[in-house]
Write a protein that binds this DNA or RNA. Structure first.
Lengths: 140, 140
DNA sequence: GCTTGTACTTACCTGGAGGTAACTAATGAA
DNA sequence: TTCATTAGTTACCTCCAGGTAAGTACAAGC
């Protein structure tokens, strides 16, 4: 079994963090996996220019105002997007992705790619499981 | 602004998937970010040998029986762990990580590493945000 | 005959994600 | 005067992750 990562060492590195830092790392990664976060970041990355709230909402198809607002607040707090308010009527607010977020996306991308490339393996695993497992369910 | 990934192209690749496959990809990635999933996988990877349910539960500190069971069922269904039941009393069940999961962990690891390395930037961003934003809150 | 150990399952509860729908402030246009 | 526009906020609802606590089956050991 190939093993390129030394997991004992990796785990030790994690435990070197304070408990607070460790939980922050988890929070960041968890947040990335929330329903709209990656999508919003990807759209901002693709646009390669600041986007108004409403333009972004059009691109992130299906998101609600409430959810988009929340996601953007979180991303702003994490330093992954910037928010610029213009004192105009009607209001104009522009969101842009930061270099920090672009760095992060560079690392997320291979994982996403890998998953899509291997999607057939997952479908096969599901089919096997769904076929075999009913047999081990107890009868009433 | 450096831009090593062609996001337009990346997005096009995503849209080439069926809607069902796209949602499956999201499910897989979302599952990875659930509370105990990565931890359990990392322990199985570190052990480098099958682990009994109770041994794994000791290693994944703080997880409940219910949650660990659920996570393992999902991972088994996704083909990321194997489950071997021995017809003994008391029961013995051994879980092992698959090569598919090891491949995936190789891609998750850099992301996690990057996050821990940059933890100070996130802490700084939070401090800035928490300091500045109260000023833009409306007064009652 | 009662306890112990293992790997669960089940019932019950709480918190938070995320959805819909309605409300808001400010101003230029009709 | 009334409407449209923008970027929200708020109330209300449902679903699900995840926690605790207790129950289950079976045999070996005291």
């Amino acid at each position: 079994m190939k093993k390129s990562i030394d997991w004992a060492e990796a785990n030790a590195a994690c435990e070197a963090l304070t408990e607070q830092q460790d939980s922050l790392t988890r929070d960041i990664v968890t947040r990335l996996a929330e329903k709209w976060t990656l999508w919003a970041l990807a759209e901002l990355a693709e646009a390669d220019a600041p986007l108004r709230f409403s333009r972004l909402m059009e691109r992130v198809e299906g998101v609600s105002q409430k959810s988009l607002t929340k996601v953007l607040r979180q991303l702003e707090r994490d330093g992954l997007v910037t928010r610029a308010v213009f004192a105009e009527v009607p209001p104009r607010v522009e969101y842009a992705i930061t270099d920090l977020a672009l760095e992060m996306l560079e690392l997320v991308h291979p994982l996403w790619q890998w998953t899509t490339v291997n999607i057939a393996k997952f479908e096969a695993a599901h089919a096997t499981y769904d076929h075999e497992v009913p047999a081990r369910v107890k009868r009433a």
